[in-house]
Simulated assay, not measured.
Amino acid sequence: MAKKLQNKSIFGRVLGRLFFLVIALVAVFAIWFYQYASTPIDHVVQDFVVESGGVKKVADQLLKQGVIDQTLPFLLLARVTGKHKLLKAGSYTISSALSPRQLLEKLSNGDTSTLTFTLIEGWKWTDFRKALNSNSHLRHDSALMSDDELLAELGISALTPEGLFFPDTYHVDKGSSDLKLLARAHQRMQSKLDKAWAERSQNVQLKTPYEALILASLVEKETGLAADRPMIAGVFANRLRVGMRLQTDPAVMYGLGESLDGRLRKIDLLTDTPYNTYTRSGLPPTPIAMVGDAALKAVLHPSSTTALYFVAKGDGSSVFSNNLDEHNSAVRKYILRK
């Protein structure tokens, strides 16, 4: 009996010691885990990308890019805090040392880094695409696509991408696809064009929103002074109404493309292309540049004028004339005197 009591006593002491040992180990682990979660990591990189996938895949990506130095405790912390299902893909920037807990907060909040990309009014599509391809912070999914392939990828039915993207400043995630930016710029242009067309003046003779976009691109390229846009649009509207050719140099230059050698010459004005508004009547087949709000508004609310001609004065502004004699006089005064 005494032996049994002695054995129970020894077992109790062992069990008690094991219990306290477990408690001590749990306490040590809890302290270590708290310190791990709270201690800033010595990050190797400042910019990193997280692709879609489960928490294990994300942890592997972070380890490979030098954002974390071990995956197991990071995975455990993600699951303990419930963040493992909230991690968002994107491009991120670390501006100061973050603890694993802070890193998880950043990833679960989708606190991605962004870049600013600006499209300029008057840019041609080739200018836009060159700027896209040279931006090192974008993923260039469209770089090897032809224009037709790109339009098909974006779901756009058009002969050319020219003029279909709204010039503005866009903020997009670093590392995101250039197709995403293109889609946003096209959607914005379509929204702007639809709204402007719905609010057009009743006397506008243009038949479709696309015609308005084409004419707006001519106004955009012809305008040196913003205040002249409605008058230039009025001149073009008058010419279209009476059947005169538009005779706008920027369209001719666009049609000549890379074959244009310096300034326009007389032979260039006589060389027929679909964009030569000296040899062909009506509008060119497509826009010749990207247009902003002001050009769209000008062609859909043109000035009420009898002018049929305009010539640049050399200071950015234009002088407008009602007939050919007045125009020739203005040409002699502002062009031939140079």
Rank of each mutant, 00 (worst) to 15 (best):
V50Q: 00
S108W: 03
A312M: 14
N276W: 01
H137C: 08
Q65I: 12
M253S: 13
S113E: 11
L63E: 05
A237R: 03
R200E: 09
L193P: 00
N7M: 15
L151A: 11
T39N: 10
Y275N: 01
K333H: 12
T118A: 15
D127N: 08
A294Q: 09
Y170G: 02
G66M: 08
G122Q: 07
L144P: 04
M253L: 11
G82I: 05
A295R: 00
L107S: 00
I31A: 15
V67G: 01
S96P: 06
W32E: 04
S134V: 09
V45L: 09
L63H: 06
R101H: 09
S329F: 12
D168W: 07
L107Y: 02
I288R: 02
G110I: 05
G243L: 12
S96N: 13
T114H: 11
E220Y: 06
S146Y: 12
I288N: 00
S217I: 04
L246D: 03
A78I: 02
R265Q: 15
M189T: 05
A59L: 06
L336N: 09
M290E: 06
V55P: 01
L179V: 09
G82F: 07
D147H: 12
T306R: 15
G82Y: 11
L225F: 12
V14P: 03
G257C: 15
L76F: 13
F48G: 00
I335M: 09
S9G: 14
F29M: 05
L151I: 12
L182I: 07
H84R: 05
V22M: 10
D47W: 05
M231Q: 10
W197G: 03
A295E: 01
G12S: 12
Q247M: 14
V235Q: 00
V26M: 10
P100T: 05
L181H: 02
D141A: 11
L283S: 03
L193H: 02
L132N: 04
A30Y: 09
Y309T: 04
E222W: 01
S304W: 09
L159W: 06
L206T: 06
F11K: 11
S201K: 11
F117R: 01
K124E: 10
L150H: 03
V45Y: 05
A298D: 01
V299N: 02
L138R: 07
G243F: 14
Q35C: 13
I232G: 00
L25I: 14
Y36M: 11
D69E: 14
S177C: 11
N328P: 05
D325L: 15
R13E: 13
D42Y: 06
E220N: 04
S217M: 04
R265N: 13
P167H: 08
S304V: 13
R241D: 10
S281D: 14
S281P: 02
G163S: 02
L193G: 01
S201N: 15
N109A: 14
D47G: 03
A330S: 10
Q202N: 15
K333D: 10
S217P: 07
F320S: 00
D272V: 06
P302K: 04
K3Q: 08
